[in-house]
Design a protein around this nucleic acid. Sequence first.
DNA 1: GTGGTCTAGACCACG
DNA 2: GTGGTCTAGACCACG
Lengths: 124, 124, 124, 124
Amino acid sequence: MFNIDLQSRIPVWEQIVKMIEKYIQLGILSPGDKLPSVRELTQQIGINPNTVQKAMNDLSMRGIIISVSGRGSFVSRDARAVLLEKAEKRLPELSTLISELLVSGVSVDEIKKTVQEAVEKTEE
Amino acid sequence: MFNIDLQSRIPVWEQIVKMIEKYIQLGILSPGDKLPSVRELTQQIGINPNTVQKAMNDLSMRGIIISVSGRGSFVSRDARAVLLEKAEKRLPELSTLISELLVSGVSVDEIKKTVQEAVEKTEE
Amino acid sequence: MFNIDLQSRIPVWEQIVKMIEKYIQLGILSPGDKLPSVRELTQQIGINPNTVQKAMNDLSMRGIIISVSGRGSFVSRDARAVLLEKAEKRLPELSTLISELLVSGVSVDEIKKTVQEAVEKTEE
Amino acid sequence: MFNIDLQSRIPVWEQIVKMIEKYIQLGILSPGDKLPSVRELTQQIGINPNTVQKAMNDLSMRGIIISVSGRGSFVSRDARAVLLEKAEKRLPELSTLISELLVSGVSVDEIKKTVQEAVEKTEE
DNA sequence: GTGGTCTAGACCACG
DNA sequence: GTGGTCTAGACCACG
């Protein structure tokens, strides 16, 4: 369930954050659902509790999950809204990436084809 | 001429690399042209010489520039080819980004609009 | 009748204590009145019996209620006096909060307005 | 310079956050100023580096400081604006506290006197 | 059992 | 030297 790459330049705690966000976006985790506990995730991923805790803390501070001491962590009501808002803010990244590719000599056709394929593949 | 963001999570040396690559791609620097010296760049950007050196080493190792000791660094003949090849390899990044945006709830229309605008803006 | 916020950082047992104190202060519960049993409260609030018990112990220890084994708990004679004494001790909290708000740049007017409104709203 | 109470129910990292916020609000630290390094604070306060790091991370995520790896942490441009915004959100706390005191039997006069004194003391 | 805090300390990339 | 990441593990209050 969790594919963590310890060699990646992306910190492990961020990878955990991304994974959980993805599960929420895909509807595998819905608002109100209980997340696995820090200890469970620790065992599943085979990693230190503090690293998991850091991921949970980040999600909690951004209002994506709500952590209740002694009870567990739960997907917040507006988790998806928060994630959508975050994604909207990433649209400039898309602009930048496309500019860079074009300037490097990648053709418009190639870019549009890649975009189209990504859209189709995701919508399945 | 050099917009370096010290607060960015991208290392300064990588930002310098990107800048020089961009100048080459835009034709501001052409094959055979002499690059400013490490000293000049250091002063212009107002940064540690080692950082500039690291950027130059990276460009040199990838065959984008050729450093001749005692004479300076020059844009290589096949600099643009190297950069195109690198860009082609970045197309999967585009796929990934689009998937992530879609999964987060960003609409296909919004993405296509952003892509179109970026293309038009760059082609001007 | 009991608004318990499980997500609050304030422990549930403290929230129960506050609620009961409030009922006494508002005269909904008067000296000599019998409190609902632990069982009743447990069901009403839908929470662990130990948590309710902990709240009762605290109230009992501070002389606000008197627990008679086998008979139940009753509001003590000097419950209100105890609560007033406790409140007087909280005046420094008020000072601290106001200082913090002022130092943060909140205007004196805004603070006085908030104070006035709170007074009027409570006195109704 | 740092009064940390290890016995307090407020976590040490939060106490550090509060301290730094206060210095910014009082103008002892101004936008652009460099904060002491994690290691310096660690020694000054006599506490574990991770605890200090946690405080810095919190300030950084809320946009109050900007941490530049390898260079240090700096007070952000809009640090004071962020702090003011946070304080405005705390005005309901003031309402609640006053209501609670009144309901407990504290007189309006006593409350207004305390408010007035706090204002005068802070404005000196 | 649960999340949260804290210590002690190693290691990393960057500048 | 700097911030950031991570491990290993203890302890706490709460429920």
